[in-house]
Design a protein around this nucleic acid. Structure first.
Lengths: 123, 123
DNA sequence: TGCGAAACTGGCCGGGTGGCCAGGACGCAG
DNA sequence: CTGCGTCCTGGCCACCCGGCCAGTTTCGCA
């Protein structure tokens, strides 16, 4: 009873583009075994937009910068990052400064959000 | 014929759960006007998993804390947040401290990533 | 009517952050 | 060989951050 083979897959439609959202809603509206989620309803999966902005692959961060960025996203301080990577705090600050420049950020928090938005790191 | 009214919506299926992915693929496989993307192909939208971890609805942040959190995610300093919200820096620090506590974070950067992971804020 | 939660403000201070200066080592392409 | 880029390190310093203490008001609820 509870373990039905396939009750109904609930999909949450989370598309910003109204036109695309409408077309998808029309296409998916009457498919057996599939239902679009009501606002706020828990869904098994979501349909999200694929903005071209998410496609970068060009910001060209060095390996070391990626290391620092990852630890930065974990909330690590420069001192912790330095210990973790076995380098000096000065060097960490050097890489952080480079990251702020490349990611066009004003601070480490901004850098992490920018990196996440561009898909450079995964939260 | 380049400006077709609706060529075909390309959907990228990005579901970790194999069973769910299979069922979705079967359901969406033969719908006119809709196609699943080939690996690596650029898609208009993606179907992503809705992990239960993203469902919090209990951390209970106050409205003001959400205001501060949003600006914090934009990389704003306490001073900027204060100006933006028309309150004093001390009050901002008060809310930030509360956020760090509730989100179990060690710093503002950590708080933003935790909030994003839990779906409290959208990057 | 008292009581807690939320919002707001202040001072103080140790430590973290970011920007500036300087330098040296390595590998790799021109 | 001579640059160039990456990585690494040092010092200095203004500023920001987070935690500590303290207080006020306003609101809804018991």
């Amino acid at each position: 009873m509870s373990e039905d083979t396939s009750p109904e897959i609930v999909l949450s439609l989370e598309i910003d583009d109204p036109a695309l959202a409408d077309r998808l809603a029309a296409l998916l509206g009457n498919i057996a075994g599939l239902r679009l989620a009501a606002p706020g309803e828990q869904a098994a999966a979501a349909i999200v937009g694929r903005d071209p902005r998410i496609m970068p692959e060009d910001i060209a961060l060095t390996q070391r910068e990626l290391d620092v960025l990852a630890l930065m996203a974990e909330g690590a301080s420069n001192k912790m990052i330095a210990r973790q990577l076995g380098i000096s705090v000065h060097t960490v600050k050097f890489h952080v400064a480079s990251l702020l420049d490349k990611l066009d950020a004003t601070g480490r928090t901004d850098a992490v959000t920018h990196a996440a938005r561009r898909g450079v790191i995964e939260l």
